[in-house]
Design a protein around this nucleic acid. Structure first.
Lengths: 259, 259
DNA sequence: AAGTGGTCTAGACCACGCC
DNA sequence: GCGTGGTCTAGACCACTTT
């Protein structure tokens, strides 16, 4: 049970004044309580919040939905609303393992391998890796968590020709370490793209969220030191778990790479 | 007026079957029509769609909201729902002007200067630019559009000391060209961060969207060839207008930059 | 003036988590 | 079995855009 501060004289559903709507007032009131740490852990139940702010449940849920979009709160399926933990900072260009950058930031990481199989590439992958659509690729799906909270589903496809016997390794561990130690890929290039997306089942289920939840989709094409693409990654992140960060790099150097 | 295809035998509000909910069925039906280009331009009115799919308006709006999160449709304030144009590809690391990369992709760009003033830095800016909190900075706000659709609000802060008389230039034009031609900054480094966010007024209004709409926040710290930070940018993008893209760069080179 | 989306209500019942 | 959030309805009125 959590008690929250709330000015009893405020009529949150009084929509007449200055085009300020009830859901916005409720949103701001709850946001204030979260930012000032008066609200932590789980929120009171929706029906309780309705009573507190004197609004209908759908109005309250509009406010909660926006707080969710802001990355302040999230829901566990049918169990309640919770204040979001801090975001993980992630540099998709950096040659660092999930284990490394999560522990650097004080998180407890874990990984579960969902599947491992041989696939034929879809159009996007065959074009990106420059392989024929009948080439066999090793495909693995993994879900990765920080502090017990699932944050990303990865869908990785590897060129068997480029990484012989890749399928025989333990692929729930760090791929970047495997590339370094077994395949001697110390120099790696990335093509990255990031966009806003929706998470649908079954990905949403793996992330303990709902069908249609907000996400961030990160796509990576990994190349060896000669520029040959050998790995295609799709990462579906919880939108509220992630801040993409990339530190200064010299534009000039990049131009030197294209002689 | 737009006619849409729709299997008349499907009862969209029959929620009993296989945990498939009405809003998900409506969402998929409309998405299919958009992807197959049977729906273009503006959608039928909400009340019309309610009748078509035999659902209540709030159920329909849940479906529309998810299609909006998917980046398939967007709304113009109280005028209707529209199919989204294609996304702009944007590389925040690249030393290219807005004019350049939009026209490269076949868009018609435009920029409006909203304000230009001298400010004192907030905590985040003073730390990023390593300047005292009493230092005066030139701050400009701009809104940029492609094909007449506002897509990003920029909030740029420049170090006056580093860019003397910056305030005297026409700041609705390209800053990167100004840096090159006037200040001879041919080599520039960036620190970038990207995260999901909500757009609130007045930013939401500049982007012709609603208070609480989804957005992407891109933060950039720009440094000169010596690594000295002289510009702090905050960019608030429509979430449905943008795909962040960054092409392959050698990790090794970056390590060489830190001797 | 008519039509649109935007806000809001007061209910109802369901599916699932937790005890 | 109780409490939670999840889905859904059928209205009402408002603010704004379009005609």
């Amino acid at each position: 049970m959590v008690t929250i501060t709330h000015d009893k004289t405020t009529k949150y559903s009084n929509k007449m004044s200055k085009n300020i709507y009830a859901y916005a007032l409720v949103r701001e009131a709850i946001a204030k309580n979260i930012i000032e740490k008066k609200l932590t852990g789980n929120l009171p139940s929706e029906r309780e919040l309705c009573a507190t702010y004197e609004v209908a449940r759908s109005t309250l849920r509009q406010a909660l939905g926006q707080l969710e979009n802001m990355g302040l709160i999230f829901r566990k399926n049918r169990s309640g609303w919770y204040v979001c933990p801090r975001k993980l900072k992630y540099d998709p260009m950096r040659h660092a393992s999930f284990l490394q950058y999560t522990t650097e930031q004080g998180f407890q990481p874990s990984t579960v391998l969902l599947s491992k199989k041989q696939i034929k590439p879809c159009k996007e992958i065959s074009e990106s890796l420059h392989v024929d659509k009948n080439t066999s690729l090793t495909s693995i799906k993994r879900v990765r968590s920080v502090d017990g909270r699932a944050v990303v589903v990865e869908d990785l496809s590897f060129s068997n020709a480029h990484l012989p016997e890749i399928e025989k390794h333990d692929l729930s561990l760090s791929i970047s370490i495997l590339l370094k130690n077994t395949y001697k890929h110390h120099k790696v290039l990335y093509d990255i793209s990031v966009e806003s997306c929706c998470l649908f089942n079954p990905i949403a289920q793996h992330l303990n969220t709902y069908d249609g939840a907000l996400g961030l989709k990160v796509t990576r094409i990994v190349r060896d030191q000669n520029g040959v693409a050998f790995e295609f990654d799709r990462e579906y992140w919880r939108h509220d778990a992630l801040m993409i960060e990339n530190n200064a790099k010299l534009d000039v150097f990049i131009q030197h790479l294209k002689p």
